[in-house]
Structure formats: structure tokens, C-alpha cells
Amino acid sequence: MAQFSVNATRFDPYKNFKFRVRWDGRFVAGVSKVSALKRTTEVVEHREGGDPSTSRKSPGRSKFEPITLERGVTHDAAFEAWASKVWNFGAGLGSEASLKDFRKDIIIELYNEAGQLALAYKVFRAWVSEYQALPDLDANANAVAIQSLKLENEGWERDEAVVEPSEPQLGDAG
């Protein structure tokens, strides 16, 4: 069973707006939104032959939902480069995909309000199933252009090496 540290002075849950995403050993620039990490386990219903009125339930297969990453459009080509590993226009007949290294393990880190690493999750064998290079463009809009990746994955787990930090205490102003 996992051992997690407990910060006895923290009563509030962590906020969802301080996070970073890392792959290939570096942080990915500008990620502004990460969808939820969600795992679903199928329910297998069965009954015993001598007990016709009662169903029993047990766990079946588990699946991990795709993860979507969003960020503002910039000149950083990290999203497009990864998406092109699965399909690359103009690569030539029979070589549109590079199945050698299209999967990546990624790390999603959550920080506390003081900017200290509080939680991290490792996502295993992710690959791009959907890539949006540009959003709908609208001359009458006032918004940031967002690109996105939809990542299929084969599971995730909490990084137990990341322990809850002791939060800094502000000095008295008086």
C-alpha cells in the first residue's frame, strides 16, 4: 500500500491552475489545459444457478480515458512533431507513420499556491489520436488561438516519489 505524507497544517485542497506537463525530459511550453485523468472499470454481473433472484458484481476490464492537452498557438512545434509521428502528410506511400517512437510516457505535475511540486502522475505509452493545429478562425472574435492533442494511453499512476511539501510561512510584517 502506498505511503503518503500528510501536511497537518494544510486544510484546503490544491487548486487546478498551477501545473506543468513534461515529455522527452523537458517541460512543454504553454500548456493551458489538461483534461481529467479518468479510469473506468467494467462491472461483470453474474449469479449462482441456485440463487435466481440475486446478482453479484465483480470488476472486469479497466480502461483509461484519453487525455486532452490544450495550449495557445505559437512557433513551438512540439505538438505538431508528436502528432506527425502517427501520420505525416507527404511522407510517401507506405511511410506516413513512424511506429518506432510514436508513444511517449508523459508526466503531469500539480503545484501548490507557493509554486512547490505537490503531486505528479506518470502517464504510460501515450500517443496522439487527434491533433487540432488551428481552431475556427473568426475575424470578429477576441480570443487566443488554441491547438490541442488528444492522447490515448495505457494507464497512469501517481508518482510516489513526490511527497507533500512543507509550505513556506510568511514572516510577520510588523
Rank of each mutant, 00 (worst) to 15 (best):
A118R: 06
D76S: 14
K85N: 01
F102R: 00
A83G: 04
R39W: 12
G90Y: 01
S58L: 08
F79R: 03
I106D: 00
Q132M: 11
E113P: 06
G115M: 06
S55Y: 14
A36R: 12
S58A: 14
A143Q: 07
N112V: 11
V43I: 14
S53R: 11
P135L: 10
N88P: 01
L93P: 14
G92K: 04
L117F: 15
Q132F: 04
N142E: 13
D136V: 09
H46F: 11
D51A: 14
R47V: 09
W82T: 03
F79A: 13
A126S: 05
V34P: 03
V123H: 02
T74P: 03
S129D: 02
A120C: 10
I106T: 07
Y121V: 00
A133L: 10
G94V: 12
D105Q: 05
L137F: 12
N140E: 15
N142I: 14
N142S: 15
R103H: 00
I108F: 05
D76C: 09
G60W: 03
Y131E: 05
P52Q: 00
Q132H: 10
F102P: 01
A36M: 06
L110E: 11
L110N: 07
N88D: 03
H75S: 13
S95A: 08
S84K: 02
G72M: 05
Y111P: 06
L99K: 12
I67C: 06
I108M: 02
G94Y: 13
I108T: 04
E80K: 04
